[in-house]
Design a protein around this nucleic acid. Structure first.
Length: 362
DNA sequence: CAATCGTGGCG
DNA sequence: TCGCCAAGATT
């Protein structure tokens, strides 16, 4: 019997067995066409595929679902999104994280409308020219929305390939090797379903911890399972410890109830998002940085938050301001215009800690 | 290539 | 409590 995982085996037994599994176990998702419809030639809306793939970058399906529904309800097509106000899109994205994605989402929508007649390019190469669309997303859209036989490599595919072929090279150095392995088993038929099948497999069976090898459709050809190395793969280069940074956030309310907020610059951490005026976040003592001269009260509780590469401890100071107050930084948002849900999570934490103190007085 | 860039869940 | 992890892109 031949080993189906060996390169050079062109029987395509690997995609066939996985697609058979996918036909029975595909998860129903709002941006997805069911496998039976897909086999009949149906394809999903490229706009919805693009939006879902951008939202899913480094983000779980569970976290994305509500955001996807709100975005597609408010902006049903790419032209609707392209015409949206920046602040509305950033506010709708608030809480999902990696806010450069939202900035690039808008740039991309506007480019598609302005330079492509409102129609997404239907090739990987064409898609790669658009903001926020990298190697993974370009291949995913080309395969899923346009039926092109592109190789889709995300974290799931890397893990599945590392185990299937028992590859011990640590990531990210192993990336080319894993991509080559994935390319060898990408089928010309149903490439979009195949890509989603590998990702479903990685998300539900070939999981990072406690993989369910016993019920895996690829248990027979899997070399890591045969050698007992599955849970050790893929190997990764160790990452360094995260430092603690400290800062001060200033929460102020005017006598008429308006809140003092600030739009952050379009680059860097939380770029383009609404937030409370504050100091820089640094290791060591946080610098004073009040947006306006006032009688600032130090709040007892601090906001704690962990970002990708540091922990943050935010001291909170609050003040009520007179009508004639003219802050050096930030702008007043009246009660009707301020939605706490427009804030990124760290800023919403600050708000939740500070608000009771205002409720008591106002 | 390595660093930057969020958040929530889970063992 | 903590580290790891999730359908990565950009610089």
């Amino acid at each position: 019997m031949r080993d189906a995982s060996q390169p050079g085996n062109r029987t395509q037994a690997l995609p066939a067995s996985l697609l058979e599994w996918y036909d029975r176990h595909a998860r129903a998702l709002p941006w997805r066409v069911p496998p039976e419809d897909s086999r009949a030639g149906a394809r999903p809306d490229p706009y919805r595929v693009w939006l879902s793939e951008v939202m899913l970058q480094q983000t779980t399906v569970a976290a994305v679902k509500d955001y996807f529904h709100r975005f597609t309800t408010r902006w049903p097509g790419v032209a609707d999104l392209a015409a949206a106000e920046d602040g509305d899109v950033m506010g709708e994205w608030a809480g999902l994280g990696y806010y450069a994605r939202a900035r690039n989402l808008l740039k991309c929508a506007r480019t598609v409308v302005a330079d492509h007649g409102g129609v997404f390019p239907d090739t990987r190469e064409g898609l790669l020219t658009l903001p926020g669309i990298g190697p993974y997303t370009a291949s995913a859209i080309a395969a899923i929305a346009f039926g092109r036989a592109e190789t889709v490599v995300d974290g799931n595919v890397e893990r599945v390939m590392a185990r299937l072929h028992d590859i011990h090279t640590p990531l990210p150095a192993a990336k080319p090797e894993l991509t080559a392995a994935a390319a060898r088993s990408t089928p010309a038929d149903r490439p979009g379903d195949y890509a989603q099948a590998v990702m479903d497999l990685g998300a539900t069976i070939c999981t990072p911890r406690n993989p369910a090898c016993g019920i895996c459709p690829w248990r027979a050809p899997c070399q890591a399972r045969a050698r007992g190395t599955a849970t050790d793969l893929p190997r990764k280069t160790p990452k360094k410890a995260q430092p603690v940074r400290r800062g001060i956030a200033y929460v102020a309310r005017r006598a008429d109830g308006a809140w003092l907020l600030e739009r952050r610059p379009d680059r860097g951490l939380l770029g383009g998002m609404l937030g409370w005026p504050g100091s820089d976040w640094i290791e060591g003592a946080p610098p004073e940085a009040p947006p306006v001269a006032a009688d600032w009260t130090v709040l007892g509780a601090e906001a704690r938050h962990t970002f990708t590469h540091f922990h943050l401890l935010l001291e909170i100071r609050i003040a009520t301001l007179p009508h004639e107050s003219r802050p050096e930084r930030g702008e007043f948002l009246d009660v009707a215009a301020f939605r706490p849900s427009d804030l990124p999570t760290v800023m919403r934490k600050v708000f939740d800690l500070a608000r009771p103190s205002f409720d008591a007085v106002m």
